[in-house]
Design a protein around this nucleic acid. Structure first.
Lengths: 390, 390
DNA sequence: TTTAATATTCAAGTAAGTTGAGTTATTAAG
DNA sequence: CTTAATAACTCAACTTACTTGAATATTAAA
C-alpha cells in the first residue's frame, strides 16, 4: 500500500499485482459498506477462498487499514473474527472551490469528518488557491495531530460545468479555470493523488457514508449556488463524457402555468429572493424561519415542492434510482419539509407498491456535503476499483 | 472458453482464472472496437506485457474468436501482425418480445446480423413464447448453417418498465409477464446464458457496432411503440436499480404552449395519428411520405423536432453524452430529417465550440435496432467484463 | 552499411489464489 | 454429560497466469 498511485491504477489488464490491489479494495469496500465482517463472509461475497481473504486481511491489518473487532457468534460453528475499517488508517483531503470561498475538509477512512477549514477568496487565480489549500491542509493536519503521510489523496470540487459549454459564463463559474488542468495543478502542489469532480457528484458520494450507505443506485439533489444532480449507478458516479452530467438546474418545470428553469424555483437563491424583505438570509436564518413556519417561506416551500415533484418524476424515470436524496446548503428543516411535502409523481417507474425505501429523503452529510464529498471521492477510490475496458 | 458461464462471472474477487477471463474479454473488446490491432498495441492499451497478450491471443485464436489479418507496417520496426475478431467465432441470439409479435435475430461476433425471424403473437403466455423462440432459433441456425454450439447466449428484450410501477398497465406491456423470471425461463429453454433488458437499452448497445463505435458515453433515443432512452456511460448501460432507467416517454414537453408527454408528439404512433386521413401507415409508407415531402408529415416533423429539441436539452444536461443517436422503428428518411431539423438547445453542456461529434445523429442499426440490440447484449458480455464491487 | 526502433518469442522466475487436510470453537442432539 | 455436527480458520503444497530479460527478426533512418 505504499505505491504512490495504488488509488487509481485503471489499466484494464489484470495481473497478480493488480489483482491483489483490486482484491484489497474489494475487501475493504465490503467491510466498509457492511460495517464489520468476518473472513468467511467476505470470501463468500467476493467469490474468493477464505485463505485468500485471510492473506489480504493480514496485509490490510499490517497497513493499518483494518481493526479486529472481537468475534461474532451466529449459530453453530466457530465464531467469526470481525474486522472493521480503521478510521485512523487513512485520511482524505476534501477541497471545495467556490467563486467566493475555499472550503476544505479532512475526513477519516470511515467517512467521519475530522476537521474543516475555510478561507474567503478574493483572488481565484489557480496558484493563489493552491497555496491557500496547502495552508489549510497543514492547519487541519496539525489540529488533528495527523501525520501528513497518512493522507491518501485529495478530492477537488468545483462548480460545473467543466470546459466551454452552453452553460458557461454564469455567476457560479470560476473565471480563469476553464483551461486549467486542476488535477495536475493540485497533484503537483499536494504531491498526492487527486480526483476532480463537480460539487453535486461529490456530494452524492458523501452520502455513501450516510443516507445512501449500502445503496448502489441513487440520485442526489444538491443545493449549492443553484441546483445540481449527482447520479450513482451500480455504485459508480455517472459523470458523463466531459464530467458535466447532472446539470439539472435548467430543467424546465411548470410553475403557475409558466415554464421556467428548475433552479429559479428550487434553490437557495430562489428562497432568499422570495424572502428578500426579510433582509439577507443565511442558512441559520432560513432554518429559523422554517421552524417558526414563516408564511412567506411556507409559500416558497409550496412552490418549490411543486417544482421539485416535477423534477423528481424526470429523475426517477430517467435513472430509476433506489432513492433520491436531498442535501447541500440548505437547513435540514427545509430539506425535511421538502422531502415530506413534495408530491410524489404517480406516473413514475419509482412508484412501486413494494418499495422498501422512501422515494425522497434528506441526506445526512449536512450543508458541507460537497466539501466532505470531495474527500469521499478519494475514499471511493480506496474502496472500489474501476477500470474502463472499452 | 468452454465453461458455460464465462460470459458473466461477475464475482468481484480476482483470481488467476477470472483474471484470464477478464483479460481475454479485454483483448477481444479492444480488437473489436479498434477493428484490428497487433499484439504490442493491445499490450500497451491494456497495461499488460506483450508476452501475456501473445498467450491470450493464442488462446483466442484456438477458440476461433480471432483471425490473423496480415501485418501492418507503421514506421520503423518489425511490422505488427494484425488480429481481428472472427465474425464466425460466435453468434448471439436476439429476441424481442412485443405484445403483438416476436422478433428474433442471429448476429455474428462482429455485430453483423446473419438472419432474422418473425412470428405474430396471439398468445403471449411465457411458455408459448419460449416455444416459438426455440423454433425461430433452430430455423435461423439452419438457414445460416451454423452449429448450435456456436451460440454464445441469448438476449431477451421486452418493453419496459419491469415490475409493478406507476407506468404499468399501458398498452405496450406484456400481460402476465410482470412476475415471470424471464432470464430463468429462457435460460432453461435455450440452455444458454441469457440477458434480459428493455428495448431502448438494447438498441443503444446495437449502435456500438454502428454509429457509436468506439464511443464510451452516448445516449440512444429509441422509437418503438412509444419512445425510450438507452444510456451508455463509461461503456456500460445505465439500467437503474430495477432495469427501468430511460423511461423518457412521459417527459413533459411544451407544445403550442401546452405541456404534454414527449411520446405524444415524438413517436411512431403520434406520426400515424397525425396522418390518420392517409389511412394506416407502415414504416415504408411513412418513408414514402417523407421523401415526397407530404405537407402533413412535414407539419408533424416540425412539431416533433420542436419537442425533440426540448428532450435533447434534458438528455444532454443530465447525461453529458458524446452524442445522441436516433433509431428504431422509423424510416431513415424521417430520422435523418429529425436529426437535421431538431433545434439544438443553446443552454446545454453539449453546446461546446470544440465538439467533434454531431450532437444528434441517426443510428445505423435500422428499424430492428432492438432485435439486434438484444443480441448485442450478449456480444457486450463477450467484449467487456463488468463486476459490481459495492 | 550501420544503427535505431519495434514486434515477437523463449525460458525462467514470481506473485497470488486454490485446494485439502487438520485445528479450534460453538451449538445441537443423544 | 457426551458426542456429533457445523463453521471459521490456518498450514503447506500446488496451480495458474503474468513478468522479466535475453535473443531474434524486420523495417526505416542515418
Amino acid at each position: 500500500m505504499t505505491s504512490s498511485d495504488f488509488l487509481f491504477d485503471s489499466r484494464p489488464g489484470a495481473n497478480p499485482d493488480r489483482s491483489r490491489q483490486r482484491n484489497k479494495k474489494a475487501v475493504l469496500g465490503q467491510i466498509n459498506s457492511a460495517g464489520q465482517m468476518g473472513r468467511a463472509a467476505i470470501a463468500r461475497s467476493l467469490g474468493l477462498s477464505t485463505q485468500a481473504v485471510s492473506n489480504i486481511i493480514a496485509d490490510l491489518e499490517a497497513d493499518g487499514l483494518l481493526l479486529e473487532r472481537g468475534s461474532h457468534r451466529a449459530g453453530r460453528g466457530l465464531p467469526a473474527v470481525q474486522y472493521a475499517v480503521n478510521p485512523n488508517g487513512g485520511f482524505a483531503l476534501g477541497v471545495e472551490i467556490r467563486p467566493d470561498a475555499l472550503l476544505t475538509s479532512l475526513v477519516d477512512l470511515s467517512g467521519q469528518p475530522r476537521a474543516t477549514g475555510r478561507k474567503v477568496l478574493t483572488d481565484v487565480k489557480p496558484d493563489k488557491i493552491a497555496n491557500k489549500v496547502l495552508k489549510l491542509r497543514d492547519q487541519m493536519l496539525r489540529d488533528c495531530s495527523i501525520s501528513p503521510d497518512r493522507l491518501l489523496g485529495a478530492g477537488i470540487v468545483m462548480p460545473g460545468p467543466f470546459g466551454a459549454t452552453g452553460l458557461s459564463g454564469q455567476a457560479s463559474d470560476l473565471p480563469g479555470w476553464q483551461t486549467v488542468d486542476a488535477a495536475a495543478l493540485f497533484s503537483d502542489a499536494l504531491d498526492r493523488p487527486v480526483v476532480v469532480s463537480n460539487d453535486a457528484n461529490a456530494a452524492a458520494l458523501a452520502e455513501r457514508f450516510g443516507a445512501a450507505q449500502g445503496l448502489t443506485d441513487y440520485a442526489f439533489l444538491y443545493f449549492g449556488a443553484g441546483l445540481g444532480l449527482g447520479i450513482v449507478n451500480r455504485g459508480q458516479l455517472v459523470e458523463g463524457a466531459f464530467g458535466n452530467a447532472g446539470e439539472i438546474g435548467r430543467l424546465p418545470v411548470c410553475i403557475d402555468g409558466k415554464l421556467g428553469p428548475l433552479e429559479q424555483t428550487v434553490s437557495r437563491l430562489s428562497a432568499q429572493s422570495a424572502l428578500a424583505n426579510h433582509g439577507v438570509l443565511d442558512i441559520d436564518a432560513l432554518d429559523h424561519l422554517c421552524r417558526c413556519e414563516d408564511p412567506e417561506l411556507m409559500r416558497w416551500l409550496a412552490t418549490a415542492s411543486d417544482a421539485l415533484g416535477q423534477a423528481l418524476g424526470v429523475i426517477e424515470n430517467l435513472f430509476d434510482p433506489q432513492t433520491v436524496v436531498l442535501g447541500g446548503a440548505m437547513p435540514a428543516s427545509i430539506l425535511d419539509h421538502l422531502a415530506r411535502a413534495t408530491p410524489l409523481p404517480k406516473l413514475s417507474v419509482s412508484n412501486r407498491p413494494d418499495a422498501s425505501l422512501p422515494r425522497l429523503q434528506r441526506g445526512t452529510a449536512g450543508r458541507m456535503a460537497a466539501t466532505f464529498g470531495a474527500a469521499a471521492l478519494i475514499l471511493n477510490c480506496a474502496f472500489t476499483s474501476q477500470s474502463t475496458t472499452l
